[in-house]
Design a protein around this nucleic acid. Structure first.
Lengths: 265, 265
DNA sequence: CGGAGGATTGATCAGGGTCAATGAAGGTGG
DNA sequence: CCACCTTCATTGACCCTGATCAATCCTCCG
């Protein structure tokens, strides 16, 4: 079943490729349309907020929105980047494969875009993307993005900012990987999550432990042990509930650093 | 001595910050000037080749060029990104630190730029940069880059392409790190180097083994052993000379993949 | 010639992966 | 409503990769 839906999505994608960008919205795509509220959500993204109304409208005319069930492979590593994707709801995992192994590179949550770099370079995707849960995704033909990019200076600026942001995030992730042990990575990850939860002493892990393990570059078994390894610093786990007894204590161990852990700058 | 020159560079950098961009070139900086041949080398970079003559000239007027000895710290992690740097000759190592450990993130060779992302975002450097050898570096005030970016569409496009390229390179490096063992990383690294040396069976390592080890995410000791571990696949080492007896054999082990190892796309 | 730094080698150790078994939770169909 | 199945999480035992420590060698340079 899962596989069928996937194939349906793929054939749609191929279909739209044959048409020119302007024609795409004329296709009678049954469950696909662009309702107004999502228009404005997308519009408010940094990437789109500064661009001209006309240009934004053009992008949205060529775009389409679709609901996907969980565990659908939206894009496959190595394929041409036909669409810029935007997660409107749900969540998407970006995964890479090699030689029978795989690793989760990042998780994308609403509202944000992914694979912008492949889109602007017109290059193959470097990561596969699959839905973690039922998700609503907007797809904008890459050629439209590149065309509007040429026509709209504000959009071009926004793309630069976004790309620079993405670049810096990956560099931080790389520093995290190369400079820290798995225990330190977990500790700092928990502190980041806690900050996102407004500093609450108890908060919920956003997603499955097995995926968290992969993001942090370890195995699920090792993640289990790492959680235990953080007990001496006041971390306790109950299912997806994390509680941090003494934040200062944990920070003394984790030594968080804005040049690695601050995703804003 | 090394340390003194460093301080000299730093004070220059701080000085220029006080002045407006247009004034920088008026400073009588003794050993700093922009000779014509380097003009054209820089001009030919993808980043600058498409922009208007006038805009390029403006950038170069604000820029300055300086020779640095080996082992100078050009920029320091965490400091504001005042200059876009361009390596004209020599080579520069990009390093990150945390909690007493450090790791080499990349090596920059002529002619190319580094820390573009920090420049356009006006954010702190995420990596320190230090010369590996005597190097000639051009520095362009970040504010000038941002200003010209707003004025020149071709330059903006080029920046986007460059940033996307950088982003994809880091993603590839990250996949390399997370999906491969150190032996596999070394094998693939050697194959990449061989390709860069036009496929010659014997070629020279571009730089010190200890730095190669850090780039590949391992210790120098382990790199030594990894080289031995590749002997069964026809790799032999003599100082900085690498020879690959049977490329196919090595490739069967290394399983190179364009989505990780092809730096062009 | 002497010294410093890199490279290599050996011995040892720890972080983390693998394999296997068990437990807990959620979903499905009878 | 419950038995069953699947999937994830956890735990234990074991192993392997790669780090650490220490000693030696080599090379480059002053």
């Amino acid at each position: 079943m899962t596989d069928q839906r996937l194939r349906k999505h793929k054939s749609n994608a191929q279909l739209t490729l044959i048409k020119s960008a302007g024609d795409i919205h004329n296709q009678a795509i049954r469950d696909i349309d662009m309702p107004n509220p999502e228009y404005s959500d997308v519009r408010m993204l940094d990437l789109f907020s500064g661009m001209g109304d006309e240009h934004f409208a053009t992008l949205m005319r060529g775009a389409y929105v679709q609901n996907f069930p969980a565990q659908i492979e939206l894009i496959t590593e190595g394929e041409p980047a036909d669409f810029l994707h935007i997660v409107l709801s749900g969540s998407v995992d970006l995964v890479s494969h090699w030689n029978g192994r795989d690793t989760s590179m990042a998780t994308v949550r609403p509202i944000s875009t992914f694979i912008l770099a492949a889109t602007v370079k017109d290059a193959p995707y470097l990561m596969s993307a699959r839905t973690l849960e039922k998700s609503r995704i907007a797809l904008i033909p890459s050629q439209d993005v590149r065309a509007i990019f040429d026509a709209d200076g504000n959009f071009a600026r926004a793309i630069v900012t976004e790309l620079a942001q993405c670049y810096r995030s990956v560099i931080k992730a790389q520093k995290d990987l190369k400079l820290r042990t798995s225990l330190e990575r977990l500790a700092n990850y928990l502190l980041r999550q806690q900050k996102q939860a407004d500093g609450a002493a108890v908060f919920t892990l956003g997603f499955e432990k097995r995926r968290l393990a992969s993001v942090l570059g370890m195995t699920p078994e090792n993640l289990s042990r790492a959680f235990k390894g953080l007990q001496p610093y006041g971390v306790s786990v109950d299912g997806n509930q994390i509680s941090i007894a003494d934040q200062d204590d944990l920070e003394r161990f984790a030594k968080p650093n804005p040049l690695i852990d601050n995703f804003a700058t």
